[in-house]
């Protein structure tokens, strides 16, 4: 086993600096995905049939094509537009990863909204609440209860997908590990530490989400 503690100690601060970008991408991406996912879920429920079909096709398309290719696509497409050359790669990454995962989250929202008993809808109609208030004050709060744990799971999945930002040269955790390895040949220490950091961040979060899931479960 080739393991050098000095290299490991040297790598750690560099990796943690990269980790900041990983966290930014995860947090901003999750916020974008959570908002956009809800909008998609509501749009699919309310829009007329032909445009609904179009939205669903687009969602399936984004869902079933690789995130890396989407990242490269948007990154290069932006760099072709003269006004947008200076847009930072990290911003592009956050937006693309957010849109990619919004297609997954919209499915969770849909399932959550469907799980609200129809009686709730009927009661709100009987009380002559306007449709918007029925949705925001009656249906959505109950739907979110069922949705939040699965949104959390997608946030963890997104966290593990942030290394793909390497493709558009964002210096996040894995990229900084690779750069450190490239300059010192201490690949073992760099990548092993990167893996440990991922595990240390994602495993407790998954356990937390599991507990949240049990706590929020209504049935």
């Amino acid at each position: 086993m080739i393991w050098n503690w000095e290299f490991a100690a040297e790598a750690l601060p560099i990796l943690l600096r990269g980790f900041v970008n990983t966290l930014i991408a995860t947090v901003v991406g999750t916020i974008i995905a959570a908002i956009l996912g809800l909008l998609i879920a509501v749009a699919i429920r309310t829009l007329p049939r032909w445009i609904n079909w179009l939205v669903r096709l687009l969602v399936a398309f984004i869902r079933n094509t690789p995130l890396i290719v989407q990242l490269l696509f948007v990154y290069f497409a932006f760099s072709d537009i003269p006004g947008l050359v200076n847009i930072p790669a990290l911003a592009v990454g956050c937006i693309v990863i957010g849109i990619h995962y919004s297609t997954y989250m919209s499915e969770s929202y849909r399932a959550g909204i469907d799980s609200v008993p129809p009686g709730q809808h009927e009661a709100a109609t009987a009380l002559s609440l306007p449709p918007v208030r029925t949705f925001t004050a009656v249906v959505l709060p109950q739907a979110l209860r069922a949705t939040i744990p699965s949104l959390g799971n997608y946030a963890v999945a997104m966290f593990k997908d942030t290394p793909f930002l390497f493709a558009i040269s964002v210096v996040e955790l894995v990229t900084s590990a690779k750069q450190f390895g490239g300059s010192t040949f201490a690949y073992t220490e760099a990548f092993t530490l990167a893996g440990i950091i991922f595990l240390a961040a994602s495993y407790p979060t998954s356990l937390l989400i599991q507990r949240l899931d049990k706590r929020l479960a209504t049935y």
Partner: peptide, 18 residues
């Protein structure tokens, strides 16, 4: 718990060193 890319790089860069 670890990312796909970490595993890929581990196999590609670290295994030869081992």
């Amino acid at each position: 718990g670890t990312s796909l890319l970490v595993q890929l790089f581990w196999l590609f860069y670290v295994l030869p060193l081992l």
